[in-house]
């Protein structure tokens, strides 16, 4: 199903970047090659976000606790703005994520997707799949021993 949300694609890549592992991104960023010319709009800044839950899972919001986050904004020489809000306290990761976000809006988007985003997506899926498979192996199969009405 195609999404009608015009921001859906950007939302997806920004989310993928925010949740990726810093060493993976570092490796893929080096594989991408030269850092494009850019200026820093906001240098990497570490802060927190208050994570909320819902009372009874479906009710009103409450404050669960904070998480660390790093944000960063850049402008490419070609004019595109890139933003990053990423989990953790890694300034390099935030900077690279902001650059990738900017590049994805530029003419370089196809190669950035192939060299950086697609591998990140595969890694994320593989990690999730590995955990899901282990969980599946601990699923209980019940079998009836004696029926009460006999």
């Amino acid at each position: 199903m195609m999404s009608t949300d015009p921001d859906a694609e950007r939302k997806a890549w920004m989310s993928l970047l925010a949740k990726c592992r810093a060493p993976d991104l570092k490796r893929l960023w080096s594989a991408y090659g030269a850092t494009p010319g850019h200026s820093i709009l906001r240098a990497p800044e570490v802060g927190s976000v208050m994570v909320r839950g819902r009372s009874g899972a479906v009710g009103s919001a409450f404050n669960l606790g904070e998480m660390t986050i790093t944000r960063c904004s850049v402008k490419l020489e070609t004019g595109e703005d890139g933003h990053a809000y990423v989990q953790g306290r890694d300034p390099d990761k935030a900077l690279h994520c902001a650059l990738v976000d900017a590049l994805m809006q530029s003419t370089a988007s196809a190669s950035v997707r192939a060299i950086i985003l697609d591998p990140l997506q595969e890694l994320a899926q593989a990690r999730q799949q590995a955990r899901a498979s282990k969980a599946a192996a601990t699923k209980v199969d019940f079998f009836t021993m004696v029926r009460g009405e006999d």
């Binding site: 927190s48 976000v49 208050m50 660390t68 944000r71 999730q128």
Partner: peptide, 16 residues
């Protein structure tokens, strides 16, 4: 830490 904001309430229905 400066606080940048608050999250949307987490959807535990979608938990992996």
């Amino acid at each position: 830490l400066p606080r940048f904001g608050a999250s949307v309430p987490v959807a535990t229905d979608d938990m992996a």
